[in-house]
Amino acid sequence: MPLYTVPDKPAYWLILSRNKVLRHEHHGTLIYAHHSELSFVSTYIDEAVKVGEYHDTDCFVLDMQQQEPELDDAELIGLREAMMAEHDSAYNILARAWQVALFLRTHRYCGQCGSEMQRVDWELATVCHRCQHRCYPRISPCIIVAIKKQNQLLLAKGRHHKQGMYSILAGFVESGESLEQAVHREVMEEVGIKIKSLRYFDSQPWPFPHSLMVGFLAEYDSGEICVDGEEILEASWYKENEFPLIPPEFSIAGRLITAAMKEHDGVNTPR
């Protein structure tokens, strides 16, 4: 992401403060305005970063870090709540904005020599002019898989799931591992079963904090469910009419669950 001079015309603004997003009563999280209309923006204008376009209009993120913006008819909301309220194009902009802001927050100083880092003016990177160490945003690949057993789906309750929420299995890809190897390993480690017929479904940026979720569909092969008791607390096979609380369809987990159940009727829905 290059450094960018904010043009003297209206644009869309995403305002971040701590780990929250500013939501305006009338504009939502993408505030359409000239920067002069947002008094607090002037103080931070040099920190604005263009994160793309929305409705063919420039979109900027402004990270106020620990400061709170002052704007009537607006409130700070959690990132997850904000993303659940947005459709695809706004979701992608918000996901990118948060990951850009997090990268710049956490790369202010060089990891090799401790000197202050400078933003590169032609790509999204920071560089140390003392030792020439250059950093790029971290993207952590994760796998997520929906596993079918005839007309049942494996759903699990994780340690970090909100109360009552069940989902499909997911985990980080380890160094030296393929995506497919990561799926088989995570399934075995978390619930103790083997799977087959593994196939790619779709992917989704997931800014919690900087993941790329890579989704798969699979079928049960063998073994009995035995949860690890650490990441996964409970797991079982569920028919569709028995589902507990599951993720919404804005998430790749929700879409994978829907796709897996439709496959039972001979419908294949990956994008």
Score class of each variant (00 low, 15 high):
260 A>W: 07
148 K>H: 11
229 G>M: 07
222 S>Q: 08
261 M>P: 00
81 E>I: 10
90 A>Q: 05
97 A>T: 01
34 H>F: 00
95 A>D: 03
119 R>C: 06
182 A>I: 00
170 A>E: 14
111 G>D: 07
218 A>H: 00
245 L>Y: 07
27 H>I: 05
222 S>E: 02
131 C>S: 03
99 Q>F: 06
237 W>P: 08
135 C>K: 08
201 F>C: 12
31 I>D: 00
119 R>K: 10
229 G>W: 02
242 E>R: 03
27 H>Q: 09
181 Q>P: 04
247 P>G: 08
53 E>K: 10
28 G>Q: 08
23 R>S: 13
64 M>G: 02
253 A>P: 02
266 G>N: 05
104 L>I: 02
70 E>A: 11
35 H>N: 03
175 S>I: 11
258 T>Y: 14
186 E>P: 00
98 W>F: 12
215 G>Q: 04
135 C>V: 14
151 N>I: 00
124 L>C: 07
94 L>R: 06
179 L>F: 14
181 Q>C: 07
71 L>K: 06
137 P>S: 05
27 H>A: 02
106 T>K: 07
137 P>E: 02
6 V>C: 02
105 R>W: 01
107 H>R: 01
80 R>S: 13
146 A>H: 11
205 P>G: 09
63 D>Q: 02
118 Q>E: 14
202 D>A: 07
182 A>Y: 00
253 A>M: 12
244 P>T: 03
201 F>N: 10
48 A>C: 06
217 L>W: 01
143 I>P: 06
100 V>H: 12
16 L>D: 03
59 C>N: 05
209 P>C: 07
198 L>W: 08
50 K>R: 15
162 K>F: 13
237 W>E: 07
145 V>G: 11
185 R>S: 01
262 K>H: 14
256 L>W: 09
120 V>Y: 07
132 Q>R: 13
190 E>K: 15
135 C>T: 15
258 T>N: 14
188 M>P: 00
138 R>Q: 15
183 V>L: 06
226 C>V: 11
178 S>T: 15
184 H>P: 00
53 E>S: 13
147 I>Q: 07
73 D>S: 09
221 D>M: 14
128 C>L: 07
32 Y>L: 10
28 G>N: 04
239 K>E: 14
157 K>Y: 12
18 R>Q: 14
135 C>Q: 15
11 A>N: 11
133 H>A: 14
28 G>C: 10
64 M>L: 15
118 Q>F: 05
140 S>D: 15
26 H>T: 10
71 L>M: 10
60 F>Q: 00
174 E>T: 13
262 K>N: 13
56 D>R: 15
138 R>V: 14
165 M>W: 04
136 Y>N: 08
179 L>G: 08
259 A>K: 08
74 A>H: 06
191 V>D: 04
106 T>Y: 12
184 H>F: 09
221 D>I: 03
222 S>A: 15
262 K>I: 02
202 D>R: 04
241 N>M: 09
162 K>T: 12
233 L>Y: 08
104 L>Y: 01
